[in-house]
Design a protein around this nucleic acid. Structure first.
Lengths: 235, 235
DNA sequence: CGGTTCTTTGACGTGCATCAAATCCTGTGG
DNA sequence: CCACAGGATTTGATGCACGTCAAAGAACCG
């Protein structure tokens, strides 16, 4: 049995996810099949099209999933934080790459084990569904929001996911956010400048910590979700 | 036990999915918990924010999933065809509405049953993962493709999903495709006109049947997927 | 038929991309 | 400690892809 040496830094919002460190009841059983690993900043955990042999749980640090198109175009599919489970694939091949944004530590279980264990399958199903839901929110951003709305909604979602802290550590660069939101780095910079001008956020410190000065604005940005919007049939 | 009166029209490409009519081995067991229903064109199966009590399998017809934003903006998340399983939700509430595009028939099982049955959970997990993968492909379209590329890639994906037929029945309107691809109806119309000019497709018949005249072009449009694209670390 | 809805095409406007240059930050070596 | 190089961010000026507006077909249906 491998010892899990690092403390897992999952937030309360990440509770209920798979990661071994999060689930005391399942801990013993998962430990028997779990291994762990470390990643340096910028290191690649797996690449697009590689064989998908494991499901991962992020324990510390931050990771992004990204996919590429000819012409150097890149889409960042998601940013991952402690407590997040990832590595889902179909046909045994990863559809995206996973790159560490900071020093990170992960635990992993084999995809076979995940398939074989029915109890695990139920938990993975719930996780996969929540990613699907997240992915739908992202489609709304990319398909139907303006640049300003995308950035604000992204920041609001990130803030909520991290338990609404007063300060957010931003492990990614503007270009990563741009590739996540279907924008250019310059546009992301301009929109963050606008949020700063409007008093929603403070300046980004040297160590990438962003102060949230107007939580209500972020709260409001997400208010539209969960509101009962009228939905007539085909219109 | 409810009789399942209609023949399920799932394509071969949809094999391996959940729908009761597709899985002889599971048929008996699923029938015991499955019910079925009919939908008229334009009818709503479930709405955004409603309680998610069932998982559905589409047996005949076409359905779309859509989500709304203030200001009348709409995002079509996916188009569903026979054999597709849908209705996944987190927190017991649907994040989108399901609207029938044509007369349709569905079978359904209760979400509780799906949770309780471990074998079912494994199958649903695989389905959920394939939607997640689909959703990632869609993020690439929305975030990093031009209008022309989005339409071509969408058409290519649709064609592949339906087993590369010579003629595709298009149950949706341009505005639905536009809301799926983050474009305007007029832009979709222009791009389809361009594909027709370039000999990729024929004219759209009165009964919404589109003839594919250049399958190789559609094949090529998807070639970039599955190609081993270089993925350096953070760039 | 005449009304309604959808599609097509054209002309024009705009939001964001692109290009460019200044500034800031960080690590490195003298 | 400072000088310097390389990379990231910020900001401004300009261009273009797609949105917006408008109007003319085309299909449908009572």
């Amino acid at each position: 049995m491998l010892a899990l040496v690092d403390a897992c830094q999952a937030t309360a919002a990440a509770k209920g996810r798979l990661c071994a460190c999060l689930e005391p009841t399942a801990l013993g059983r998962l430990r028997a099949i779990a291994a762990d690993g470390r990643l340096a900043a910028g290191e690649i955990l797996f690449t697009q099209d590689s064989a998908a042999e494991h499901v991962f749980g992020l324990r510390q640090g931050a990771v992004m999933l990204c996919s590429r198109l000819p012409g150097g175009r890149r889409q960042v599919l998601s940013f991952l934080f402690p407590g997040d489970t990832f590595g889902f694939a179909v046909g045994g091949r990863h559809a995206c790459s996973a790159v560490a944004l900071t020093r990170a530590s992960v635990c992993r279980i084999s995809a076979d084990a995940a398939d074989a264990d029915p109890q695990l399958a139920g938990r993975l199903l719930r996780i996969s569904q929540s990613w699907l839901c997240e992915s739908h929110a992202q489609a709304l951003r990319l398909g139907r929001m303006t640049a300003a709305e995308r950035v604000l909604d992204f920041l609001a979602a990130l803030w909520t996911r991290l338990d609404r802290p007063e300060e957010i550590h931003m492990p990614m660069r503007w270009v990563d956010i741009a590739d996540h939101l279907g924008l250019r780095m310059e546009t992301v910079s301009r929109e963050f400048s606008a949020l700063r001008r409007n008093g929603v956020i403070g300046p980004l410190s040297a160590d990438n910590v962003l102060t949230i000065t107007d939580g209500a604005a972020l709260e409001a940005a997400q208010a539209c979700r969960g509101k009962p919007l009228p939905c007539s049939g085909r219109d």
